[in-house]
């Protein structure tokens, strides 16, 4: 409805939810996930430091403990969500070809979801001890 023959002015098109059609949702979620990671970063670094120099059996034992698994899963959700939003902003800023932009945004979603699910699956596997 906003093609060249539309009666709507450029200003009218960006009003309300704006030109991205999703309002400030991504802005808010970017901050939400950032605060989550700011809170989780100290335990996450502590966990990684605990794993230095250990072999697979030792690492698997630590990663499989419940509080550590929960902290890591929360951090993975926050970080992959945050980076999905961040990379989409970068793509939208620099890729001006509409089709290439859509492909980039789609690839970004696939990448982030794949990293998130692979990491979470690995942690759940370690937790269940299968």
């Amino acid at each position: 409805m906003s093609g060249p023959s539309s009666m709507r002015t450029p200003l009218g098109r960006v009003r309300n939810l704006g030109s991205s059609h999703s309002g400030t949702t991504d802005f808010w979620r970017q901050r939400l996930t950032a605060v989550a990671m700011a809170l989780l970063i100290v335990p996450v670094i502590a966990i990684i430091l605990m794993l230095i120099g250990r072999n697979q059996a030792g690492a698997a034992q630590i990663l499989g403990s419940l509080p550590i698994a929960i902290i890591l899963v929360l951090f993975i959700i926050a970080s992959t969500w945050h980076m999905r939003i961040g990379m989409q902003i970068v793509i939208e800023d620099y890729v001006h070809n509409e089709k290439l932009k859509l492909a980039g945004v789609m690839a970004n979603n696939f990448f982030c979801i794949a990293v998130a699910l692979a990491s979470i699956y690995a942690i759940l596997k370690l937790s269940s001890g299968v």
Binding site: L63, S79, T80, M83, V115, S119, Y121, A122, K125
Partner: peptide, 16 residues
Amino acid sequence: LYFGTLLLAWWLIAAA
């Protein structure tokens, strides 16, 4: 950091 998560994922998958 975006691409660095691949290293983190690789490490977790390897541990599992």
